[in-house]
Design a protein around this nucleic acid. Sequence first.
DNA 1: TCCTCTGTGCTG
DNA 2: TCCCAGCACAGAGGAC
Length: 838
Amino acid sequence: MAKLLLVDGHSNLYRAFFALKTRLSAPDGTPTGAVYGFLRMFHKMLRELAPTHVAVAFDVSRETFRTRMLESYKGTRQPMPEDLRVQVPLVQKALELLGVTLLLTPDVEADDMIASLAEKAAAEGFEVVIATVDKDLMQLVRDPHIKLWHTRLERLLDEQGVAEVFGVPPGQVVEVLALEGDASDNIPGCPGVGEKTARELIRRFGSVAALYQHLSEVTPPKAQKALAENRELVELSRTLVELKRDVALPFALEQLARRPPLPELAEFYRSLGFASLLSELGPAPSPPPVSPAELPALPWGELLPSLEKADLLACRLVDGQLAIACAQGFASASAEKALAALGPRFFAAWCYDAKALLSGLRDAGVAVERSCQDAMLAAYVLAPGETVELSALCTRYRVPAPPLATPEGELSALLALAPKLRQALEAEGVVEVYEKLELPLIPVLEDMERVGVKLDVRFLAELSTKVAALLEAREREIFAEAGGSFNINSPKQLAEVLFSWKGMPVLRRTSKTRAPSTDADVLQELALQGFRLPALILEYRELSKLKSTYLDALPKQLGPDGRIHTRFNQAVTATGRLSSSDPNLQNIPIRSELGREVRRAFVADAGKLLVVADYSQIELRVLAHLSRDPALVSAFERGEDIHAATAALVFGVASELVTPDMRRAAKTINFGLIYGMGAYALSRELGVSQREAQAFIDAYFARLPRVREYLEGVKEEARRTGKVRTLFGRVRHIAGLDSENANVRGNAERMAINAPVQGTAADLMKLAMIRTYESLKAQGFPARLLLQVHDELVLEAQAEAAQDVASLVKATMEGVASLAVPLKADVGVGPSWAEAKG
DNA sequence: TCCTCTGTGCTG
DNA sequence: TCCCAGCACAGAGGAC
């Protein structure tokens, strides 16, 4: 297939210039940093994108039709720095020697030229890729045949990619830029409306025109006022950012076909001192830089017989179509058609990131209830905590990396990786974890992400206003006490105030830079010593954290449906847990009273209720099972308060004589065990001497000897094999167990102790989620899983069904495995997360 | 300008 | 010299 690469010369050259400023020059002293940076990037694109046609566009004059529309348009722009200007002819010469067509058209901006050319080529059946860092070119990705190679992110963006990176889909890029302006192009936008507001407003209203039709509904009031006052400027900005797509093209597209580099190129590179770029030119001076062997693109009907016979398939989504590859080549068809043709063989096909694939298929109107094979997850269970990037996998499993940014490149990499991954899963003994836990979890997580959780934004806004007032009051007190103003949020400035101005003692230094620490522990201690400022700072910090991370940040993540759609990442943690991001909903406050208020904002939709279920003491129960310690097991079997029971045991008193302090100490040791805590950490935690802490630990192990034996056994196994396993066979590789450095070794040992416990709990929860999801579906319950917070599940159910759902979830969680101790789950029902848990 | 690092703090 | 596993914020300073 013909593929046209259009390079925005201007933005890429500027970027290369600033990145490599003053760091390179030719033997004669001419600066060459920008030339080098540009060419290195250019060669990389040729390699990764493998285009058949290439052109690079440069601006040649500053006078264009736009300058006439806005006097200031580009008027205030700095002239090109001299050091950069002298490099332009060098870049152009190199490109010519590379056999690349230059587009230098007076009176037309390079962006307009690119726009016109891209649309023409797309109409003629080209795949078009535009290489730029400029935001305004993103508008062109509206056309499904046009994609954007973001040279900074080194990522190929399709329509969805633009939406991810820019915040709105390509069709709305112009609308957003009309509001926020574009500093690099001197587009004013609306003063007072920045990046965040602009994107939120367009997400809500859709366009500048619609925004002005509903101006009275615009919030915040500040934005409404700014928009009302700058209507003309906004509308002019909108005209300016819209690219011209009707520039006459004085040549045929075929003239842009790549030509072999000229023999003089090598000499030219040598004269500039670009030794490393010479290797890009290949062994001989003349052969064209052709990409490595690619899968041939074939019409669907032609590939189909091969697909039906093939024993290895790879797939991915391309523009809403499902592309399928086998050794003979690749082809794409509508998701529906492709899935119908594949039938159950889809489940054996390999993709990268199946959750994204399933989600895309669903967007394309096809709901698949089971996942296909996933190279990302296979790589994850093989080496959790390591990167699962596709290019890294190619290196790790020794398969040649094709141009991975292209669909055919990714598909051929998957075809090469799949057998290696399958073999490695078997060799490592993690096939079960992959097939029974990770793959079945994919549709569950996809559904949770899609459903999202409703947020009461008005409640958060009110709370934010209250906290803002409290913060201002605290700030005044702090400045009065400090005797001057400073940025309280800056640890550096705060340290200056506390330790230099006020002369308080430096209690601890940070580990990375040895700067005086100002963390909560230090402030707490200083407050205890009678200083007033640290106590105020502690209060300020709590409020500030709450406001910036939760009260103000969460509403910004709201989807158009009024719900928050977090991402549950399945291939991140080293222990097998999930993680949550964008936003992280696994760290919503609960420990402090004010923080807990945030959970009131997570609410059930009308007519529904939230059902919350959390495992009680899951990790300690896992430890009891793994160690089979009789005292621990029987305490759980009898359903005792586990911390009180261990306190009675360790302190040798009857259970009714356990004091709160004794229970607290036992609780700390119980938790500490799971983390491999030592006497030093325990002494700090309990506020006792290290000797006393050691005595506690000795007493603990004397009463619970099997726990000690288990922990020693895990360390021994880890030292012998370099890895540890969960009850379900999930593996974690651990380095450093034989290190000479006691610090490194201690860290490794603690990881070895913690991973099986934390990981087994994670496995149990994953299985419980899969079963809950299946049961709800099979029994037709009007309820959906929404969130997982490691040992807790949050569901939303029709109010009438909520109690039954609660019973089902509880039974499912408790019955997920039969351990040496019972599993216990507590459930609650309520209108909000806070109330359902209470 | 954007990106990365650092310190800090929230959760289980 | 802190106790495992995460993610996100603000500030500060350098740069593919």
